[in-house]
Simulated assay, not measured.
Amino acid sequence: MIASRRSTIALIALLAACGGSEKQDEKAPPEEESDAIAVDWSALPAEALEVDGWSFKDCGDEYWPALCATHPELGAGRVSALQYAIETMPEFRAEVEANGAAAALQWFAEYTVNLVREDRPLGCPGSEMIHIHYEPGTVDSHPAMAFGFELLKGGVPVEHVRVYNVFDGDTLFSISITGVDPDDGCFEPEGDFEVPGAADFEPIFHRLMKGSTNLRGLGWKSPPAG
C-alpha cells in the first residue's frame, strides 16, 4: 500500500429564499421535524453520545480536533476537522473578492477534487475517481459546500470521501470523513473508516453537519514543527 496525502476542502453557495404564497388566507405548510444531530464544536462530548446505534466522543488533541464514531456492527472511524485562515490562501481570497464566497468555494472544491484526481494515479496506479458531486447549503447559518467522491481500483471501491467546507468570512472550515480499504487502499488508514463503514455512516455525518454549531470553537492550533 502506498501512502498518499489526502486533499480535502470544499465550497459554499447561498440557498435561494422561498417566496411566500400570494393567498393571504392560505396557511404555510408545517415545518418538517429536523433530523439534525446537535454538535457544539466548542465543547465536543467527552462522554459517549448514542445516536441510532452509533456512539460519538471527542477523540482529538490540542492540534487536531476530531469526533470518533463507533458502531458494534458497522465499524469505527472519525470525523476530522481542519480550519484555514483566509490570509493563508491567497488564491481563494482573490476568488472571494472577485466573485463572492459561493463562487470561490465552488472553485476550491473543484480544485481540490482535481488535485486528488491527478495525485491518486501517481501513487496508486489503476485507480479511478467516480461519483463526484457538489451540493451547496449552509452550516450554522454560514454558506457551505458539501462534496465527495469514490475511488475505484480494479473496479473495487477503495476510498470513500465526504467533505463539508464552511466559510464564515475569514476562516474556511473543512469537516470530513474518509473510508479506506485497509488492504488495497491508496494510503495507510489513520483512524479512518473502512469503505463500507464510511458509506453506512454518511447519512449520520450529514445530520451531524446539519446540527453543527460554534465551528470557531474548534480550538485548532498550528501543529508542532516536524
Rank of each mutant, 00 (worst) to 15 (best):
L44P: 05
A66E: 13
D40A: 14
T112K: 04
A36P: 06
S7Q: 01
T88H: 10
S176K: 13
L67N: 09
Y63L: 02
S7K: 00
P45F: 09
L11Q: 09
N214Y: 00
S222D: 09
E47V: 00
G179S: 09
E73M: 04
P224L: 11
G226H: 00
A81C: 15
I9Y: 10
V113S: 01
A28V: 12
P143D: 04
Y164W: 15
Q83F: 07
P189A: 06
D170T: 13
G185E: 02
F56S: 02
Y63W: 07
V39G: 11
R207F: 08
F147E: 11
E50F: 06
Q83S: 15
G179A: 08
Q106R: 15
L74T: 04
Q24P: 10
P65S: 11
G169F: 07
P136K: 04
R162V: 11
E202R: 12
T138A: 15
T178G: 08
D58S: 13
S55C: 00
A146E: 07
G211F: 11
C68W: 14
P157K: 15
Y111G: 03
E73Y: 01
V158W: 06
V139P: 04
W107E: 00
E97W: 02
R162L: 10
A17G: 10
E50H: 11
W54A: 05
E50R: 10
A225P: 12
A102I: 01
L208N: 07
N214T: 04
D25F: 15
S176G: 14
A98E: 08
L44H: 10
E47W: 00
E22T: 14
S127E: 09
R6H: 11
S34C: 03
D35R: 14
V166Q: 02
R120L: 15
Q106I: 05
E194C: 02
G100P: 05
A146M: 10
T88Q: 14
H131N: 15
P224W: 01
K210E: 15
M1D: 04
P65E: 08
G219M: 10
A199P: 00
A94S: 11
A85G: 11
I2E: 04
E135M: 11
G169S: 05
R78C: 01
A198W: 02
A10W: 06
P121K: 09
D183K: 14
D200M: 13
E33D: 09
P223I: 07
P29W: 06
G100F: 08
T213Y: 01
D168K: 03
V161S: 13
R120Q: 09
V116A: 05
S4H: 12
E87H: 01
S4R: 13
E110F: 00
A81S: 15
N165C: 08
S21F: 04
R78I: 08
A102Q: 06
T8P: 00
N214S: 07
H71W: 05
M1Q: 04
N165W: 02
P203E: 12
G154Y: 10
I86S: 03
R120T: 12
S21M: 05
G185T: 05
E47P: 00
C186W: 03
